[in-house]
Amino acid sequence: DESNKPILLPNESQSFERSVQLLDQIPSYDTHKIAVLYVGEGQSNSELAILSNEHGSYRYTEFLTGLGRLIELKDCQPDKVYLGGLDVCGEDGQFTYCWHDDIMQAVFHIATLMPTKDVDKHRCDKKRHLGNDFVSIVYNDSGEDFKLGTIKGQFNFVHVIVTPLDYECNLVSLQCRKDMEGLVDTSVAKIVSDRNLPFVARQMALHANMASQVHHSRSNPTDIYPSKWIARLRHIKRLRQRICEEAAYSNPSLPLVHPPSHSKAPAQTPAEPTPGYEVGQRKRLISSVEDFTE
């Protein structure tokens, strides 16, 4: 099969070098950035008060330690540790928490760990991170309901609301924008112990962030949302095809390698009803078989 044979790379090609550099910018793992907010007593309706908090309760602090690993920003190499735009020179604080497994990295933009500057009256330095995160974990210690939209931002799609209760338990629920209701189930609340709260809140936030990324990708319907490693695979396959075309153009005697095509017509299947918005969006999480067989 010609399409699977190794090909020689061009010795000097600026377009090839640019493509390789672009490939280096696509990590081999999925990345997520999640905002974390603490809401104190009497702050449920005040964005400024929430963003001005420099610490929270003892249970909130224990919750943070379970979310991930504490890292010092100045020691991080952005090409190895995903920071979601946090500055490593102290502009966004000294520490944050991050978490990773074999296929993804997540960083938490924690408002109480970011510096509260006197010259920044409206807390814009914090909002440029927190307001651009799709998902926020809100530790609501106010005793009042927290409403979506209290923290203004164009991309605040989903809130994971943590409400501490007695007996070391917590109520965990989801809020989302109306255009996200087909992807996020907000109907079920959970009672979770303090011990298990970081794991549950983190998983709910990661799932909500993946759904938000799919939702946000609708602005470019021709580019369905893939995982990062599938995006790398697609980029490599496009690069291979372009090299083959350039080689055939410079030397017409060489065969032009095309991806294999299936001449056999697909079997006719009964027509199915058109899937609704929710089903269609969830299918976009699934990769096409052509990603692996071309």
Rank of each mutant, 00 (worst) to 15 (best):
Q154Y: 12
Y225R: 09
N251D: 13
F108Q: 01
D79M: 03
S212G: 03
F63K: 00
N4S: 14
R242D: 14
E168C: 08
F199K: 02
D120V: 06
S44W: 03
R232T: 08
A189W: 14
Y167W: 06
D24L: 03
M104W: 13
E245L: 10
L183C: 13
S173V: 08
H55S: 07
P221R: 04
T112W: 01
S46L: 03
N209P: 01
N220A: 08
L23V: 07
S46E: 08
R59V: 00
I286E: 14
F146W: 13
D179Y: 04
N11W: 05
H55Q: 09
V200R: 00
K152V: 06
E144G: 04
S173D: 04
L171Y: 04
D102F: 03
T61Q: 09
L148R: 14
K190I: 15
I50Y: 03
T116I: 09
G131E: 15
K228W: 09
P270Y: 09
Q94Y: 15
F134K: 03
S3G: 14
N156V: 07
S13I: 07
Q77K: 11
R218V: 08
H122G: 15
F16R: 05
P275G: 11
S44T: 11
V184W: 15
H32A: 14
E17A: 10
H100A: 14
L113H: 04
T116A: 08
R282D: 14
S212Q: 03
N209I: 03
M204N: 01
T163D: 05
E2R: 09
L67H: 00
A231S: 08
T31R: 09
V158I: 06
N11V: 11
S187R: 09
K228C: 06
H129K: 11
K228Y: 07
D24V: 01
P115M: 03
Q14E: 11
P6T: 08
I191F: 04
L233H: 07
P115K: 07
E91Y: 10
R123N: 11
S187N: 10
P115V: 04
I243S: 05
R69M: 14
H262G: 14
V36T: 01
R69N: 15
Y249S: 08
G66F: 01
Q203R: 01
S13G: 10
N220E: 13
E17D: 09
E245H: 08
F199H: 02
T274V: 12
F292S: 15
R202V: 06
E91C: 08
L239I: 10
G42K: 04
V81P: 14
A49T: 03
H159A: 15
E294I: 04
V138T: 03
N209Y: 02
R18A: 11
L73E: 14
K152H: 08
V200L: 05
K5M: 15
M210H: 02
Q175C: 06
P270W: 09
D166W: 01
A189G: 07
V107T: 04
S57P: 03
E72W: 12
T274I: 11
F63Y: 00
S136Q: 04
V107S: 04
T274H: 11
S227P: 07
H216M: 08
L148M: 15
P259Q: 14
V81Q: 15
E72I: 05
L165S: 02
D101P: 02
P27E: 14
R234N: 14
H159G: 15
K117A: 12
Y60R: 00
S44R: 03
F16T: 09
V162A: 02
L183N: 03
C124F: 15
D87L: 01
P273G: 10
W99Y: 11
T61H: 11
D102Y: 04
C176Q: 02
N251S: 12
G93Y: 07
M104C: 14
Q77T: 13
E2A: 06
